[in-house]
């Protein structure tokens, strides 16, 4: 446990030292603030609380931004240490390989936690102070922050898998961008393309739900847009998720599985890896 803490704190300090955390907080904070302030304009006509609107717009933003930040944080963490030779030295210390992975993961999770909660949380506070908006709907906002953290954790784990798999940092960077494109852009495009062509003949409700759950970003979207009534009404998808048999427990479980599987694969590959 102590070793994990030492390794995690090293990653956290690295994040603070290279201003990584500061940059992430500023990016997430300003975008959240901009979206919240701009997004609160149409609330009057559909009687949704500004907080709910914020959750919808921030969830849509996070789907793109959080995976990108998480991958940037994680893609070179293993291959970089292999390349420089620092991993070799580290492993001759009283540290096992799984401790290296889990320690790094905890450290990166802390970085992401700070970035999301300081960025989004700070924006929420400013928004309520400036616009005097009610705090109504804050549960949805806080749960959006937590689910964003889980989304980030998924892409940290995927980044590790890339990082342990490739031989060079440059390859890892390319693979990380590819991963982001596939999960964030291409998968949805292909899915909707397929739906359009199919016109409801082969892809039924059941299969469609499965296909949505197969993508961590879609799972995150459904979770945020459907978990709270206010949000789902404002998003215009009230009851869609529950009709499809997707409880929030199921959605969160799917996301946790998306963390566990890449981490386990990373560990397996790392155990066999020769330095």
């Amino acid at each position: 446990m102590k070793i994990l803490w030492i390794l995690a704190m090293k990653e956290l300090r690295d994040g603070l030292r290279n201003r990584w955390i500061a940059a992430a907080i500023i990016v997430l904070g300003t975008l959240a603030l901009a979206l919240s302030l701009l997004g609160s304009a149409p609330t009057g006509s559909i009687k949704a609380s500004p907080m709910d609107i914020s959750v919808i717009s921030l969830a849509s933003l996070s789907v793109y931004l959080i995976p990108l930040i998480a991958l940037m944080l994680s893609f070179d963490t293993l291959v970089g240490e292999f390349e420089r030779g620092t991993m070799m030295l580290l492993l001759t210390y009283p540290v096992t390989r799984w401790q290296v992975i889990i320690g790094k993961f905890l450290g990166h999770l802390m970085i992401l936690f700070i970035a999301i909660f300081a960025g989004y949380g700070g924006a929420m506070l400013i928004m309520t102070l400036v616009t005097g908006a009610s705090m109504e709907g804050w549960q949805a906002y806080v749960s959006m922050m937590f689910s964003s953290l889980i989304l980030g954790a998924i892409f940290i784990a995927l980044g590790y898998l890339v990082s342990v798999f490739v031989r060079e940092r440059a390859t890892a960077a390319g693979a990380a961008i590819g991963l982001w494109l596939v999960f964030v852009v291409l998968y949805d495009l292909l899915l909707f393309g397929a739906l359009l062509i199919d016109e409801g003949q082969l892809i039924g409700q059941q299969l469609f739900s499965m296909l949505m759950l197969a993508s961590p970003t879609d799972t995150y979207r459904i979770l945020n847009l459907s978990m709270f009534d206010g949000v789902s009404q404002a998003a215009g998808i009230a009851g869609v998720a529950s009709e499809a048999g997707m409880s929030s427990t199921l959605l969160v479980s799917v996301m946790l599985l998306w963390i566990a599987a890449p981490l386990a694969a990373t560990l397996l590959i790392f155990q066999r890896r020769e330095l």
Binding site: I6, R13, R17, R84, G85, T86, L89, T92, P94, V95
Partner: peptide
Amino acid sequence: SKIAQHKTLGYLPESVAFYDAMTGSEVLAF
């Protein structure tokens, strides 16, 4: 990595590399 559990092992690799962003005392403290 049973050997790694041994706290009384020291290793100096050929052309040793460190975390360049850290200071000497930070790395040694780590």
